[in-house]
Computed example of a mutant assay.
Amino acid sequence: MRIAVTGSSGKLGAVVVRELRAGGHEVIGFDQHGTRGPGFVQVDLADYGQVVDALQAVGDQHDGVDALVHLAAVPAPGIRPDIATFHNNIASTFNVFWAAIRLGVTRIVYASSETVLGLPFDVPPPYIPVDEEYPARPESVYSLVKHLEETMAIELVRWHPEVSITALRFSNVMVPADYAEFPSFDADARARKWNLWGYIDARDGAQAIARALDAAPAGFDRFIIAAADTVMSRPNDELVAEVFPDVEVRGALGEHTTLLSIDKARRLLGFDPQHSWRDGL
């Protein structure tokens, strides 16, 4: 496929571009910052006209795309003022969804977020491991936008039943250079409780996107995307007993198995994370 990837210069985006190209796809990166050259278009996603133009054709770079991967955003709370985060993220997502649909692009995969699960879990989760079955619990403006984006996607596919929009609720994205810090997390179980000690290797994030582009049917669905393990060497039962002693545990926790359930992504997308921080130390 010819795939447009927004946020192509970001931490996850750069890996996604690399991995999709390695998988045989033609990739056009869209971002406000990046290296000029084939396969990259500088575009302000908050400007709808630029988005339409960039998706439709750009000089001799391309004459339309088959699929859209939307990763561009202010990537976390606390980076910019809340109002700037809200205006940038919701407008950019609407622009790329609406432009893609208007141009006949029917395969859209985008970055939602683990934050909709209730991070930083100052209010404990309803049960552990968490999954996609309970209603969103946004606790920040950033997370509120992610919830609104999912709601928007539900309505867009209702209006356009031929369109597939897949929301991937990515955990904290990591690259191999980040893993040297992980052993220090064991000293304080609460230091990483904010996302139930989860993470996702960017290479496995790219795999999830590729799987969704291939396998997701028409309509909307959402998936938690995390590594198969936690960031901790300490066992799960010890962590949960210390930090969330009153939360219902559903099933076996496993010694280090992710507490952000990826069972749905495994079952419906064929997602199979291959990378762990434990392999690189």
Rank of each mutant, 00 (worst) to 15 (best):
D66G: 08
G270Y: 07
T151H: 02
D44G: 05
E150F: 06
R102W: 02
V105A: 03
A212F: 10
G64V: 10
A46Y: 00
V157M: 03
R190K: 14
N236D: 10
I101Y: 03
A100W: 01
V17E: 04
Y48T: 04
L239E: 10
G39D: 12
Q50E: 15
V15T: 15
A22K: 15
L55G: 01
L144E: 11
G39M: 11
R2L: 15
A91Y: 01
A228P: 01
S112H: 07
P273M: 09
V41H: 05
A241G: 13
G270A: 09
A187V: 11
Q207L: 12
V96P: 03
T258M: 02
Q56E: 13
A252W: 05
H62A: 09
T35G: 01
W277N: 01
A84K: 06
V65R: 04
P120W: 09
G24W: 08
A265N: 04
I3T: 13
R222V: 14
A57L: 07
R222E: 08
F40E: 04
D237V: 13
K146C: 09
A4C: 14
A228N: 08
Q32N: 14
P75C: 13
A189W: 12
D66I: 12
L144K: 03
L239R: 13
Q61K: 13
G198P: 00
A216Y: 03
E19I: 11
G13V: 10
R21E: 15
R137D: 03
A187M: 03
D63H: 15
R169Q: 12
G78E: 01
N88E: 08
F220C: 00
I3C: 05
R36V: 13
G13Y: 10
F30L: 15
G49K: 11
L213P: 01
V157R: 02
A167N: 08
Y127Q: 01
S261V: 03
P124V: 07
G29L: 12
V5I: 15
R192L: 11
F223R: 00
D204E: 11
M1C: 09
G23Y: 03
A22F: 07
T257H: 13
W197E: 00
V231P: 03
V69W: 00
K146V: 10
S171W: 03
R222G: 12
D31H: 08
F30E: 06
A189D: 04
V145G: 02
G59K: 08
H147M: 14
A265W: 01
A206F: 12
A14I: 11
L259C: 06
P126H: 04
S113F: 12
P161N: 11
G24S: 06
L269P: 01
V163H: 02
P135T: 10
V52K: 13
T257A: 15
E132P: 04
A153T: 00
G205Q: 06
P245A: 04
F30I: 09
D229S: 06
K264F: 05
M1S: 14
P38C: 13
F40L: 12
T6S: 15
E19W: 11
N89Y: 07
P217F: 07
G254F: 09
V52N: 02
G254T: 11
G219D: 02
Y110T: 00
I200N: 01
P235H: 13
D131K: 05
R234Y: 02
V243P: 00
Q274G: 05
E238L: 12
